[in-house]
Design a protein around this nucleic acid. Structure first.
Length: 463
DNA sequence: ATGTGC
C-alpha cells in the first residue's frame, strides 16, 4: 500500500537515471522483500554516497557496481567468421550439433572450440561441445547440471563376489542410494562443504543451503546411476601398480542436484538480460568475468562442482562401509564445467559441456551404457581438442524416440544377454539409446589412452 | 537435469 520501493524513491534519493535504478529494484525485490522501505532507503543512500565500500557485498555489491560503472546493455552481434575448431568422429555427429558449435564459434568472445565424438544437440552449446572464451563465462556453456561428474572406486575383491553376493549388492543399491526428484536420506549427513563462505555471501546460494543439505549424497534422475561392475586393468604401466586383471568396482554418475540447477537457472537469466544476442543463439549469453554477476557465477559454479564431488564421496564412502572394504583406487572427473586454462598462450575460460578433461596424464572416466563397457582413460593433452575427450557414448535415440520405438521386453533381453541386473531405469535410458562406445573410443584415440575397462553388472537408476 | 521465487 504505497510502501513498495519505486524508482522514483531512488531518484529522490539522488540515484542517477540509468540502469542502477533497475539493478537496485531487482536486488531489493529479490533479497530485501521483507525489509522495511525506510531501512532500505537509509542503506541505499549510504551505498550511493560510498559505493566503493559496498563492492563484493551479496546484495549491495551489484548496486555499487552499477553506480560506479553503469553498463550499457547493447545488442551483441555474431562475427561472420568462426574461431578455429576441431571435430572428432564427424561422421557420427548430426549436423544440428555442428551448427550449434559453429554459432558458438562466432561469438565475439570465442577463441577456439571442439566437438567430441559423442556430441549431440543441446541448449546453447551442444552436448560434447568444448568452447574457449576470453574473460567471459557462458552459463549454458557449462549446462544445467553444473559439476555433473563421474566417480569410480576399485576394491581388492574377487569378481566372483558379484555373483556370490549379488543379492546383498542389489540390496545396497536399493536401500542406500537415493534416486528421483524428492528421495533423500532418512539420516542427515554432514560435510565440510557446508562451512563454505559462499553459503553466506551469495544470497541465492544461501537460500539453497537447506536443500543442498537434504540432497547430499543423492543421485537425482535422468541418466544418473550408481553401479557395481567388473574393472579390468589393461595397462601394465597403470599409476597404481595394479597387476593386470579383474577387480570389483563401484561407478557413479551424478551432479549438483537442486543447488547447481538453481544456480544455472539464475545466472542464465541474468546473462540473457545483460547480453542480448540474436534469438537463435540467445542461450549462449555470457557473463563478463569482470562484473559482479560474472564473479558471483564463477564462485557459485565452483561451489556446485565441489558439492557434486561431495555427493559422490558420500555415496562411495557409504557403499565402501557396507562392503566392509577400503578402495585401493579412486578416479573422478567433472564433465559439465568451466576451467581457467591456457589456450594458444593466453588464459581462457574453457567450457566443457559433456566433455572429459584430458590434459597430458590426467585421468578420467568415460562411461558406455548399462550394458556397454566404460573406460578408465589417461589424457594425451591434445591441444586441438582443447585437451578434452568425450563424456560417454552419446545418444542416438532421443528420449521421445525411445518411448515410441523401444519395448520393455527388448530392453530386458538386452540386459539378459549381457548378464546385467537393473534396478529402476526408464525406457529412455535403454542401452540401445546410445552410440557404440567402441566406435566413439576409436574416434578419440588422439585424445586419450585406455588404462582399464568397466563392465556394469548391477545397475541402479531412477525410474 | 531439476521442480513450481527472477
Amino acid at each position: 500500500m504505497g510502501k513498495k520501493l519505486s524508482g522514483k524513491d531512488l531518484i529522490k534519493l539522488g540515484f542517477p537515471k540509468n540502469n542502477s535504478i533497475n539493478v537496485t529494484l531487482g536486488q531489493i525485490n529479490r533479497y530485501q522483500k521483507r525489509v522495511k522501505k525506510e531501512k532500505i532507503l537509509i542503506e541505499a543512500k549510504k551505498v550511493l554516497l560510498n559505493p566503493e565500500a559496498y563492492k563484493g557485498d551479496g546484495v549491495w555489491g551489484k548496486i555499487a557496481e552499477s553506480l560506479l560503472d553503469p553498463v550499457n546493455v547493447t545488442k551483441q552481434k555474431l562475427n561472420t567468421h568462426r574461431a578455429p575448431f576441431q571435430i572428432y568422429g564427424e561422421n557420427e555427429i548430426d549436423d544440428q550439433a555442428k551448427y550449434q558449435l559453429f554459432d558458438a564459434l562466432k561469438l565475439p568472445i570465442s577463441v577456439a572450440g571442439a566437438l567430441m565424438p559423442d556430441a549431440h544437440v543441446g541448449y546453447g552449446l551442444p552436448i560434447g561441445g568444448v568452447l574457449a572464451t576470453k574473460n567471459a563465462v557462458i552459463p549454458y556453456g557449462v549446462g544445467v547440471d553444473i559439476g555433473c561428474r563421474m566417480c569410480l572406486t576399485i576394491y581388492p575383491v574377487k569378481v566372483s563376489y558379484l555373483k556370490g553376493k549379488k543379492h546383498q549388492l542389489e540390496n545396497i543399491l536399493l536401500e542406500h542410494t537415493k534416486f528421483g526428484m524428492y528421495e533423500t536420506h532418512k539420516i542427515k549427513h554432514d560435510d565440510p562443504i557446508f562451512e563454505r563462505d559462499e553459503f553466506k555471501t551469495i544470497p541465492l546460494v544461501k537460500r539453497l543451503k537447506d536443500k543442498a543439505y537434504k540432497q547430499l549424497g543423492t543421485s537425482g534422475g535422468g541418466n544418473h546411476f550408481v553401479e557395481f561392475g567388473v574393472i579390468s586393468i589393461l595397462d601394465i604401466n597403470n599409476e597404481w601398480d595394479l597387476p593386470l586383471g579383474d577387480y570389483l568396482g563401484v561407478l557413479s554418475h551424478s551432479g549438483s542436484r537442486g543447488l547447481g540447477a538453481n544456480i544455472a537457472k539464475r545466472y542464465t537469466y541474468l546473462a540473457t538480460k545483460q547480453c542480448p544476442l540474436p534469438k537463435h543463439v540467445q542461450h549462449l549469453a555470457w557473463l563478463d568475468l569482470n562484473t559482479h554477476d560474472g564473479q558471483e557465477y564463477w564462485l557459485a559454479m565452483n561451489l556446485a562442482g565441489d558439492y557434486a564431488r561431495a555427493c559422490h564421496d558420500n555415496i562411495h564412502k557409504r557403499i565402501s562401509k557396507l562392503l566392509g572394504e577400503k578402495p585401493i583406487v579412486k578416479i573422478d572427473n567433472h564433465h559439465n564445467f568451466a576451467w581457467k586454462q591456457e589456450v594458444n598462450g593466453e588464459e581462457c575460460i574453457v567450457h566443457r559441456k559433456g566433455a572429459t578433461p584430458a590434459k597430458k596424464g590426467e585421468l578420467g572416466i568415460i562411461p558406455g551404457s548399462m550394458t556397454a563397457p566404460g573406460f578408465i582413460v589417461r589424457g594425451l593433452g591434445n591441444t586441438k581438442s582443447l585437451q578434452s575427450a568425450s563424456h560417454g557414448a552419446g545418444r542416438v535415440l532421443s528420449r521421445r524416440q525411445c518411448k515410441t520405438t523401444l519395448t520393455q521386453s527388448a530392453i530386458k533381453k538386452e540386459l539378459q544377454n549381457h548378464d546385467v541386473s537393473l534396478i529402476g531405469g526408464g525406457i529412455d535410458e535403454a542401452p540401445m539409446a546410445y552410440k557404440n562406445i567402441e566406435t566413439v573410443m576409436k574416434n578419440q584415440q588422439e585424445l586419450v589412452e585406455v588404462i582399464g575397462k568397466f563392465t556394469p553388472k548391477i545397475v541402479r537408476m531412477d525410474r
